[in-house]
Design a protein around this nucleic acid. Sequence first.
RNA 1: GUCUUGUUAGCUCAGCUGGUAGAGCAUUUCCCUUUUAAGGAAGUGGCCGUUGGUUCGAAUCCAACACAGGACACCA
Length: 505
Amino acid sequence: MIFDNQYEQQRIEKAETLRTLGKNPYTHNIKKDSTTQEFKKCFEYVRDSDPMRDENKENTVAGRIKFLRHMGKAAFAKIEDETGILQIYFSRESIGEDWFKEAKKLIEVGDIVCVTGFPFVTKTGELSLHVRALELATKSITPLPEKFHGLTDKELRYRKRYLDMIMNPNVKETFKIRSKIVSTIRHFFEERSFLEVETPMMHPIAGGANAKPFVTHHNALGIDRYLRIAPELYLKRLVVGGFEAVFEINRNFRNEGMDQTHNPEFTMIEFYWAYHTYHDLMDLTEEMFTVLLKKLNLPTKIPYGDIEIDFAGKFRKISYIDSLVDIGGIPLDVVQSKEKIISYLKGKGEDVNEQLSLGKLYEELFDLYVEEKLIDPTFIIDYPIEISPLARRSDKNPDVAERFELFIAGREIANGFNELNDPIDQYNRFKAQLDAKDAGDDEAHEMDEDYVQALGYGLPPTAGQGLGIDRLTMLLTNEQSIRDVILFPSMKPIKEEIQIKEDEK
RNA sequence: GUCUUGUUAGCUCAGCUGGUAGAGCAUUUCCCUUUUAAGGAAGUGGCCGUUGGUUCGAAUCCAACACAGGACACCA
């Protein structure tokens, strides 16, 4: 049975008692005049009057009781609403002897109340509401965690986010900022004539990235569908169709591990810009960060954990190969040959797969010696073609793709490139992926013939970029775990929950 | 997936080399009309994550499992 805990039983009885007294514990006719913080602002002047009260004013506020202190024939409580917390005072005189006597027993921490009264300042100098009418809005059956330490158990915080929000008000702050980040980005692109679109979440072929998909089943059609791992191929179809600047902010699903920077469902913005290059994308990205910091009232230097990130000025740009030498500290002659890289890595005590191609070896070096050092925003540009299967090959250097990634705080934040729009080349690359799949690479791309067909009609020269909203939010809210910027992060079910479900069947 | 740490009252946590289960807050009863984690007095409240093993005896030692945190790996 749910609510079989002794404390919950006590509270259910209290709700029943309230009913017998003619007071609905779940009333619905609540009208408040102001929020708790509006109340404080509005009546701040009371501090300057003598006595420090204004009995002619009357105001109704509502909120959840977070603290309750009874003192014989009077009581103080702190009630909290979305905006903050406010102290209220009520006594035998102020709400009537009978109701005071009952309320003392029946109204407790966790309940949501609606109070009407006038502003006054207490002996200790706190602007408070002197209650003339006290009404219960919602009876809380489940008691709140302890008032001082609150709720710290991370598992409970993620599983019961509502409780986390009640007990840790700064959590609400983080998600308000997240909301503001998303709306700022949305407006940023709208103002620049990008069109927001929605493309399918269920794909017949999981494409646009190398990742394991989630599979679901469509009963009517009798076929499997994949939850999308990226919207990329659909967005580019739209560019073929004639939308020259499109963006989508939505969820992607990847059937992979979970850790501090990975959640199976995560939010990305992807945008595609015809007749522009990846250099334009980098300029746009810089501009977007400037606008974001301004809208969030953040300085150009922000703390992140133990480090500080400096967004001032143009972001550093350095080529992939140069970064290995200049940032990774790898000797120039080592970078030039496969054999030297292998012996260099071995000399550092790393396990090296000697079968790796030069491009893959670069990637090893980059991940080991460069990535974590990229603290201030840095564009790494001109990627090895081998590790950039969807990007356009450089006309100047056939080993290099016209691609960049943005790194901040040692983490990849965005990935953009000039799109491959040669349909024959694309067809052959898909074919190569098929061969890889046959050879056992279960993350290799499927052939998406319809997409190749679309390219056959002509994709104008286009640059496209993806940017992880969750990781961006982590940076701007100084959170170290992706679970702290996702309202309901993925969690394994607890055994008991499954058993309860089976019992109910 | 590997390593590691944790799981004890509603919450936050003690519990040593095995010997009847502890505290604070919350809750219940009582006192208290300006408190700030209010205060004072007395109570209630435990499948010590689950299942096995060792032992006369296990919250404690061992094993497996479950869930979680951290690190690493995987994942462009």
